[in-house]
Design a protein around this nucleic acid. Sequence first.
DNA 1: GTCTATAACCGGATAGAC
DNA 2: GTCTATCCGGTTATAGAC
Lengths: 206, 206
Amino acid sequence: MSVEKRRELLLDAAFRVIARDGVDGATTRAICGAAQMTLSTFHYVFDSRDDLLADLVQRGTDIELSVIVEALTSASSDDIEGFDGIRIMLRESLFGYIDGLIDDPDREQAMISLNQYARQTAGLARLGTDMYHRYYEAIAYGLRRGAEQAGVDWDRPTDELAPLVVAATDGITLAYLNTRDREVCERIADATVTLLLGHVTRTGSN
Amino acid sequence: MSVEKRRELLLDAAFRVIARDGVDGATTRAICGAAQMTLSTFHYVFDSRDDLLADLVQRGTDIELSVIVEALTSASSDDIEGFDGIRIMLRESLFGYIDGLIDDPDREQAMISLNQYARQTAGLARLGTDMYHRYYEAIAYGLRRGAEQAGVDWDRPTDELAPLVVAATDGITLAYLNTRDREVCERIADATVTLLLGHVTRTGSN
DNA sequence: GTCTATAACCGGATAGAC
DNA sequence: GTCTATCCGGTTATAGAC
């Protein structure tokens, strides 16, 4: 088996362990157990545990980004024009996020753990801020695309609106992980949709 | 020195260490170092490290609650009537929260760490959900009081609105801790105020 | 390359002197 | 009650056989 394949297996296993037991529960032994490898293989592939965790933070950001993009693009595939179009796209994106969250809460739990680990670890703090800026960019792009498809305009640059969406998903995530109350999450999502619709100014050129 | 006093000192020290290094960085040795006590004193006062952490989660919730109440009451002391009154009260509460967050980001960092620890620790999970429900209650009460003072009404029970406020503060907190961008936080706060004002229906009986 | 065994260390908790 | 010294389990990392 190739070294690269083993890297992937170990990173996957580490993510699963972190989802269940947190970063500090992700000992090299626990990770190797989950990946069905021995300790020496771990150190053959990675220099150290810190080394794997740094990689995992980067990888987690990429995964989360793809989830965001997935939620945005699958929702915007409905080709409804105008105000209703953007409303449905926003609603489906956020409710799609909630579906994913409830379907696999541990994944978001792991993302929160990794983000916090990055923030508190010297040398990885930069990665944490980059993570957020990349979320902002991806969502700003999604908002632009959605408005284009629906033929409407935003009343301000989408990079000013994107942080509101990220804040909303953070709020939804913590609400769900702490209360396990789907209704509360949906109320937050609905409120966010209403909020964003307040920034749709006019029907576009179509 | 009394046992009770030592308890307080150790809890304070533990909170400071967690703010800096996270829960897993808060070893008994690190806590005792920060509190200038010896290990044996620690175990004279607390049964175990887990014991202290359980107490600290409870205490952290109480502190955070008092911060919320403080932000709400100090803001609502302006006695402006009607729509402007509730607007100013909401704005000052959230901006007051941002001031506190920027003044001492580590405190919120510690709260996040403790919340996550509670969520992932068997036996403390209940405390995590209780924490959120108590936040909801406190804010629902604050919203009712604020509306009374301003002489306006909400278009729905305040316990349906409270989770939106908590989600907003969570979103603001994570945005700041990750980007250190005050403007972004203020945009989220402004949007939240606008959102809530959308649920103020009519001027009251005054 | 992959295993077993072990080194080196750090953590929580305790024993026992005073 | 408060200290020092120590035990013991668990962790990362590595050495060395195969």
